[in-house]
């Protein structure tokens, strides 16, 4: 859960303190701009708190959609408008039919893939095997942007690399838990 401390140095956009931002605008052109601004805010916010999932009910009362200072809340219809706009961009994926929870990628799998492969090349990890755990929480990646990346995001990124023939994922026991596998980076 987000704490005030986590958000202490988050840069809110100017619109966040602008009450009409929290009311979906009837004018189509204005609304498009508004939704776009909301999308950016959601991505920035999720990136800041390093969260890869969003729960609609929870988010409604989180600072993201609720500005306590100006006493404004984005209504649930608005939240869905924003989240579905993100879905159209290929950055969000609903986890259930009721659309109550979603996975959210504030950086596309391709971008993650590039970051990870760059690291592998830089640190001479090509042609060697790394465990997924090592990529997420290893001592060597503490300073990397993908530190503490969630397993499903990591796997998506690695799958992008696999398609490009730059990595192969494999495991000794396929029935082990989710992030137990390994990956071999190919030069």
């Amino acid at each position: 859960m987000t704490t005030a401390k986590q958000l202490a140095n988050f840069q809110w956009p100017w619109q966040y303190d602008f009450p009409p931002f929290f009311t979906i605008q009837p004018n189509v052109e204005t609304q498009t701009k508004q939704i776009q601004a909301w999308c950016e805010l959601v991505l920035d916010y999720q990136k800041h708190i390093k969260s890869y999932a969003i729960d609609v009910q929870e988010s409604l009362s989180s600072p993201l959609f609720h500005n306590a200072k100006i006493k404004r809340k984005l209504p649930i219809d608005g939240v869905y408008l924003v989240l579905n706009a993100l879905k159209d961009k290929g950055l969000l994926e609903w986890q259930d039919k009721k659309m109550s929870r979603a996975l959210l990628m504030w950086r596309s799998a391709e971008e993650w893939a590039k970051l990870i492969f760059n690291w592998a090349e830089r640190s001479g990890m090509t042609n060697t095997v790394c465990t997924l755990y090592e990529l997420q929480l290893g001592n060597d990646v503490k300073k990397e942007e993908f530190y503490e990346i969630e397993t499903w995001v990591l796997k998506r990124a690695l799958r992008v690399l696999e398609k490009k023939g730059k990595a192969v994922m494999f495991d000794i026991q396929p029935n082990d838990n989710d992030n137990s596998g390994g990956v071999k980076f190919l030069s």
Binding site: K87, G90, E93, L103, A109, T128, V129, C130, T131, Y133, E134, R156, R159, E162, K163, G165, V168, F170, D171, I172, S180, G181, G182, K184, L186
Partner: peptide
């Protein structure tokens, strides 16, 4: 959307040593 389209597994690129290293690292 993000679909689990598994690419053809390129088994030949994973050697016995790779498996051993993976096991150790795991």
């Amino acid at each position: 959307l993000f679909g689990k389209s598994k690419p053809k597994e390129e088994k030949h690129q994973i050697t016995e040593q790779d498996r051993a290293v993976l096991g150790l690292k795991q």
